[in-house]
Nucleic acid binder design. Structure first.
Lengths: 110, 110
DNA sequence: CATATCAATCGTAATATTACGATAAACCTT
DNA sequence: AAGGTTTATCGTAATATTACGATTGATATG
């Protein structure tokens, strides 16, 4: 009876996994880096800088948007994408919380 | 000619995406949290604490191992899993580098 | 209004992921 | 050697991901 069988995953595990999944493709990492470092976030510019087609970029943008990491805003004909600051803050906080647990040195067997 | 079309993704983007993919499932997040916080890392104990079958846990462990995040060591009949400290350090460093870019406030359009 | 541009969506194909039970392999115990 | 325990792998099915070209819809421009 010592072990506590997990009925289901925690909210934190599900949420971090969701964020990680959003970042789990080089194209989406590249998009995030563009948005994090450059001010230009017009969709067309992103397409120009990635080695994949426009439709595929659009699909990746959709995934990032559905994960809540970015937002899109209509600007005439173009769409301007940018980091969703509040969600990004949540992600960094969660990751920070996750990583700082490592400060407790625990591993012993290997 | 202003835009520089990316021939391929950077090493950093590929590597972070690989780590993110490894963490992109609640079961693998749960496993990592177990290894990060508990000392017991026997495979059987992990199986006992997750809501999925032994074979599925084994598959997830394999993915984490292939991503380099964990290591396994034979301990008699059992296998003892633990964090791969050097790889974990690399991951945290990469993520830190990635996140600290946000300190440069750039977004303007949305 | 006609046309061009930009981005999303559709349709589709190839591949990957996730899960399970069953089985196999490796190791201890008796 | 026989039997039990632990973990990996196989086989398989269901679903998801990734990519592309083609098309659509929306907005601007002539």
């Amino acid at each position: 009876m010592g072990a506590s069988k997990i009925i289901d995953y925690t909210e934190e595990q599900i949420l971090v996994a969701k964020y990680a999944k959003a970042l789990s493709h080089p194209a989406r990492m590249a998009i995030m880096q563009l948005l994090l470092t450059k001010q230009s976030c017009i969709c067309g510019d992103i397409v120009d800088e990635l080695p994949i087609s426009q439709s595929t970029v659009s699909q990746h943008l959709k995934e990032l948007k559905e994960a809540g990491l970015i937002r899109g805003q209509i600007d005439g004909v173009s769409i301007c994408y940018c980091i969703n600051e509040s969600e990004w803050a949540k992600l960094t906080e969660l990751l920070g919380h996750f990583f700082e647990k490592r400060h407790v040195k625990t591993s012993s067997c290997c």
